[in-house]
Amino acid sequence: MNAQAPRFTPAAMGVFEPHARDTFIQHYPEGPHSLRHNLGLHPLLELDALAGLAEQLPAASIEYNRGDLPIGVDGKPGSNGLSIGDTIRTIAKSNSWAVLKNIEQTDAYKALLSDLLDEIRNEIEAKTGKLLTPQGYIFVSSPNAVTPYHFDPEHNILLQIRGSKAMTQFPAGNARFASDKVHESYHTGGPRELQWDESFMDEAREFPLGPGDAVFVPVMAPHFVRNGPESSISLSITWRSEWSYSESEARAFNGVMRKAGLHPKAPGRWPKSNRAKSLGYRALRKVGLTQA
């Protein structure tokens, strides 16, 4: 697979062509699937531009560490000993993995994110209602770097811009791959990293990604990513829905119930409603009986 991205040229048909949007609507929101995009190597996604962005973002919006990691890690990985700017500028040899979070904090990247999501807004809102909390993340990885096994609370499309990688996904909502207690911990402030077991690979689904490829990741679908032999740039466009927020709050409510000695039932996956537990958690939060 050619890992060199074409230069960015505004496409009359948009970044997501009609066929990609048709594929998306067939599978969204619960089905992992591959897509194609026409974004190319956008000027805002060049290494120098990304290093500059990283140096502008607040510390809470930057995460970076060594890239020579196992699939499963116990806690946060260690530092690579470099600044974030140096990490990105030398990504081809710094043996690192970096993510720039909430890129919409800057006007130029907010516009890029908005343009991309506007192309599929109608498809999203036809299925899961109003598109809420749009956010963007950029991943910059050294050759062969690993993003360990974890999950995320957003609906997510990962667009590969430069280099290659493979994302391996596992079924969302299946307690074998992430227990109910782990979900509850995450939604009340715990880590996103998950306990890895090699036996999980019998239900793994791998999505190879090169420039122009994209993959959809359902809410809380466990996954890990292994980079290819070149440095890599990927853009993640994410959003929430009322359903995703209800699922999060229902998990948090279950955590409160479990601490009280009860054994709550796991929230339902879309399109099942988790509204009752969601409202219960909001009520507890409002009167200060749990975290905001």
Rank of each mutant, 00 (worst) to 15 (best):
M1H: 14
P6Y: 10
T9D: 13
T9M: 12
P10K: 13
M13D: 15
E17D: 13
P18G: 04
P18S: 06
F24G: 04
I25S: 13
I25F: 12
I25D: 08
P29N: 10
R36Y: 07
L39Y: 06
L41W: 08
H42W: 05
A49C: 09
G52S: 11
G52F: 04
L53Q: 03
E63F: 15
Y64R: 06
G67P: 07
L69E: 03
G72F: 02
G72E: 02
S79D: 14
G85L: 07
I88D: 00
R89I: 02
I103E: 00
T106M: 01
T106A: 00
Y109W: 14
Y109R: 11
L116Q: 07
L116R: 05
D118H: 10
E119G: 02
N122A: 13
E125S: 12
G129R: 09
L131M: 13
L131S: 01
Q135Y: 09
F139E: 01
S141G: 13
P143G: 06
N144W: 10
A145N: 00
A145E: 01
T147Q: 11
Y149V: 06
H150M: 04
H150Q: 08
N156P: 08
L158I: 14
S164V: 06
T168Y: 03
T168S: 05
A175P: 12
R176L: 09
R176A: 04
R176H: 06
F177S: 01
S179Q: 01
K181Q: 15
V182Y: 13
H183P: 00
Q195D: 12
Q195Y: 08
D197L: 02
F200Y: 05
F200R: 01
F207V: 05
A214Q: 03
F216Y: 13
M220V: 07
P222D: 01
V225N: 09
E230M: 13
S231G: 11
S236C: 14
S236P: 08
I237S: 10
E242F: 11
S244D: 06
A250K: 06
A250Q: 08
A252F: 13
N254R: 04
G261F: 08
L262W: 13
P264F: 05
P264K: 00
A266R: 02
R269I: 12
W270Q: 01
W270T: 03
P271G: 04
K272D: 13
S273T: 10
N274D: 07
A276F: 11
R282I: 03
G288V: 07
